[in-house]
């Protein structure tokens, strides 16, 4: 519909007269603060990225923002369990190779001589939710994915489904296939997807539910393009904070369209997110 282009063009011509002018105002900046990023799950050793923030027009490279001399303490159920050690690329890891335990809560306290202390909010590792049955097959030229799982009805649960693989030709870059919005059309609107892959259990209410998603086959690359000829289907049980973070990201408009919502953080005195999940993965041999 080229007319819309003309319409927008006409509006711009009328505003024609816009010109770039010097603007010396400073962006608002809250000062340098500690930035934490971590995703905790029972399958991985605890590790956390620690760096610092910078002002919008400070042209700093990632390496200039690392904080290898920070002190990073890990707490399990509010008890200090260890001080993490720095490895590289901003990451501090558990020297004891500690893996988070489902049902327990974890948080970090981080200090640095030149910055204010930062502390993440406690995150509890969600219960494991297995994929009951799974099928991935071709039907009428389209690839169909069926799966089911049982929701725990005693609490509010949050889920993320992912369908992904590693592309060897892109340096092991992961490619994600998002699910169509109609995945949960058979459910109530409260179960509609955010960020194309995340939802809460309002419509499940402790039941076992069968879902089906149809992908067009041209979305699926030839098997040889995937590393080891595999793709993965993942069902993650995620924490409430994880869900909130994704919900806010999903609400962030494209640049120039609308007002960005406040960025989610559960780090007190700093920025970033420390989130928890547990996942079940199905490997699909193509």
């Amino acid at each position: 519909m080229k007319i819309l282009n003309y319409l927008i063009f006409l509006a711009i011509v009328l505003a024609a007269c816009t010109k770039e002018i010097p603007f010396d105002e400073q962006f608002p900046f809250e000062g340098e603060r500690i930035v934490l990023f971590a995703q905790l799950n029972p399958d991985s050793i605890v590790r956390i990225s620690v760096s610092k923030s910078f002002a919008t027009f400070d042209l700093l490279l990632p390496d200039e923002l690392l904080l290898p001399d920070a002190r990073v303490e890990l707490y399990e159920d509010n008890n200090l369990v260890e001080t993490l050690i720095y490895t590289d690329s901003s990451f501090f890891v558990s020297a004891n190779e500690l893996r988070p335990v489902p049902g327990k809560s974890y948080h970090f306290k981080v200090s640095h001589p030149e910055l204010d202390d930062a502390e993440s909010m406690p995150e509890t590792i969600p219960d494991f939710v297995p994929i009951n049955d799974f099928d991935f097959y071709e039907q009428g030229g389209e690839m169909v994915l069926d799966f089911s799982f049982t929701d725990n009805g005693n609490q509010t649960n949050f889920y993320m489904v992912s369908f992904w693989g590693l592309r060897g030709d892109l340096g092991d870059y992961s490619i994600w296939h998002y699910f169509p919005e109609n995945l949960f059309l058979q459910s109530e609107t409260e179960c509609s997807l955010i960020n194309d892959n995340t939802f809460k259990d309002t419509c499940l209410n402790g039941e076992t539910r069968q879902f089906s998603a149809i992908r067009f086959d041209d979305v699926i690359c030839p098997a040889e393009d995937w590393k080891d000829g595999r793709i993965f289907f993942t069902l993650r049980s995620i924490s409430p904070a994880f869900y909130e973070d994704i919900k806010l990201r999903d609400g962030t408009p494209e640049p120039g369209f609308g007002v960005p919502p406040p960025t989610f953080t559960n780090v007190i005195g700093g920025y970033g997110t420390v989130l928890a999940y547990q996942e079940d993965v199905v490997i699909i041999e193509l």
């Binding site: 962006f27 608002p28 990023f37 760096s51 002002a55 990632p62 990451f91």
Partner: peptide, 11 residues
């Protein structure tokens, strides 16, 4: 406008 900038080094 943003009040801070940072890098996400992974995850």
């Amino acid at each position: 406008l943003p009040t801070a900038n940072y890098y996400n080094y992974g995850n």
